[in-house]
Write a protein that binds this DNA or RNA. Structure first.
Lengths: 351, 351
DNA sequence: TTGAAAGCGCTACCAA
DNA sequence: TTGGTAGCGCTTTCAA
């Protein structure tokens, strides 16, 4: 059933039906009611492809979500969920593309075949060929994350530098002097992942500023790697009393490694980092962390994109978020150190 | 740029270009090369909407993934990831719909506006209005999960009954007599969630068979609820020595509750259940569980759907999976009970 | 306030 | 082996 059928049954022309639907031209209350009745009776819905072909808009946005290595992280799920729901609120559908690079078949389909009106990019890199490509061809997009040079582009990002620094200051304030940093997997760092780089930067600078002794590690996105990484940390410097992590998926493994090394959190060892709140609360003790507001970020990204689609000439806008650290239960002043067996020295070793 | 432009530059007709692209009609090697050259030069890609309009296929599949309550679970992420990648392998794109019900706007768009060729349904209920609707209008779909009466429909599911029963037998074999069951949230159970119902069934029957004393609980999909639920369990029957859970998101909270109650896993208390392997390994000790093969299920669902799309008259097919229990570290023979302080009975040497 | 008709870009039928 | 052309179902301009 198509618009012609509706027109015939309502005794009007196809254009009138179209206008009655879109409201782009006045239609007498009478005919509009007549048409609506037929539409309701037949449960008519206009064909999306035809509509897209005729007016050049698909009412679909592309969500480019490459796997971060072998698999996806919990944070990505939060983004996908919030983007999809926000999009639905604006009557947009979301088309998924698992593309890691500009040259992916799936990415090419998205753009080249004009399946979507605009795109939201996840897992940004400091130099991002996907974004370069989009900007070059003038395709509307909003990034979750920002490149090294984000001027003139649309994005909603997290101030990873400030967040990692805040973690360092928090630990330094508690009296920690020897702190490790657990980053995302090495391949991602090499690929130029924004969060990994800026986080590392923020950590390093703040640590230098506070005169801390630090070591930095890359760590696979899974529990086993987290555990291995923690073992490495304690092996490299048993006097380490705290760590900062960006690696949500490794968190469970880090805790396990700590437990097996006989370090109790937070008495013997403090853990903090940048992690979506929902996942920070699954570990025991709950993680004191800068909570990634994934829900809000997804929603903002959609809103920016919709705005951009509606106003093609609008100047670039962005949101840089820097959520505060949520104090939970995984940090405390440093304990007596690796040799001590007592867990009850109320006071920090280094005030 | 469109197919006409290509035709003009290659000095052939539009139909020839079309056939050269689709291969549905022989084209001389000469002209095909000429055409290909122009296409490569201009980077031409056919417009998806036009193509969809002309041949009635969108090359897109819909993934209907309703939030399970307030938010999404880790397992859903695994499904989304595997479905998207499997679809990409078949040159299909994936359109997301957060629809919980047949009547959702987003669901109606998917079908009514013919945005997709077929759909994959997640979060099945025993009576599922979405599937009823799809079947009624003859829309090709594959469900991840199955209804009470799955005959004649396409699905890939998990034998939750057998899986939950296997957990019970595993615990009974170890000597546990008082066992709790931690289900998905109550609203989902009331809504008729398949996994929640069949899991509960399998648990109850197997427990009766083994003469166990049991209590069953519903539990919110988050750590806080898990903790609260565990407290309730120990309050209701402090002699409980083990539990079976389907609730992956509550797992961290369950462990926390156990720790706070002074029960060590697995010495004083055993935990097992049905959980995607990746998440079972984030807790310490790692969870002995029937691993949900989410990756495989997503892939199978796509393959079934593609088969169905290519052979509209093919008889319904399905896959019922029943993965074995992966023995990890969270179960052991029951300890001395709630009063005992000794943690060094016959349990495994390794914490 | 309404209708007729020309596209949108592609596919596939009918002829040659 | 190729070209011409009539749709696919909708939007929108032009006329009335």
């Amino acid at each position: 059933m198509n618009i012609g059928e509706i027109a015939k049954r309502a005794g009007v022309s196809r254009s009138t039906v179209s206008y009655a639907l879109s409201g782009k031209r006045p239609v007498s209350e009478d005919t509009r009611r007549k048409i609506q009745r037929v539409i309701d009776d037949l449960g008519y819905q206009p064909n999306a492809s035809a509509r897209a072909l005729a007016n050049g808009r698909t009412n679909t946005i592309g969500l480019v979500f490459p796997p971060a290595g072998n698999h996806y992280t919990g944070m990505q799920l939060d983004f996908i969920g919030s983007v999809t729901e926000a999009a639905a609120d604006h009557d947009y559908d979301v088309l998924l593309s698992p593309s890691g690079m500009d040259s992916d078949r799936s990415f090419q389909r998205l753009l080249g075949e004009r399946r979507v009106d605009g795109a939201i990019l996840m897992e940004m890199r400091l130099q991002d060929d996907r974004l370069d490509h989009l900007t070059e061809v003038g395709f509307p997009s909003v990034a979750i994350g920002r490149t090294a040079n984000p001027q003139g582009s649309w994005w909603v990002g997290l101030d990873h530098t400030a967040l990692a620094a805040a973690c360092v200051h928090h630990l330094a304030d508690l009296g920690h002097r020897r702190v490790a940093f657990v980053n995302r997997p090495e391949p991602l760092l090499r690929a130029g992942y924004e969060s990994a780089h800026r986080g590392l930067d923020g950590f390093t600078k703040a640590a230098a500023e506070r005169g801390l002794t630090v070591r930095t590690y890359c760590c696979g996105d899974d529990a086993a790697s987290g555990q291995a990484c923690l073992e490495q940390i304690l092996h490299d410097d048993p006097a380490t009393t705290a760590l900062v992590t960006l690696n949500e998926a490794a968190l469970g493994g880090i805790y396990r490694g700590l437990a097996q090394a006989g370090r109790q959190v937070p008495h013997d060892f403090s853990v903090t980092g940048v992690v979506a709140g929902r996942w920070a609360e699954t570990v025991t003790p709950q993680l004191t962390a800068a909570d990634v507001p994934a829900e809000q970020m997804g929603r903002l990204a959609v809103e920016l994109l919709v705005e951009r689609l509606n106003h093609p000439a609008a100047p670039a806008r962005h949101h840089l978020l820097a959520p505060p650290i949520s104090l939970r239960a995984s940090t405390a002043p440093p304990g007596p150190g690796p040799t001590g067996a007592a867990h009850d020295l109320g006071a920090p070793a280094h005030p």
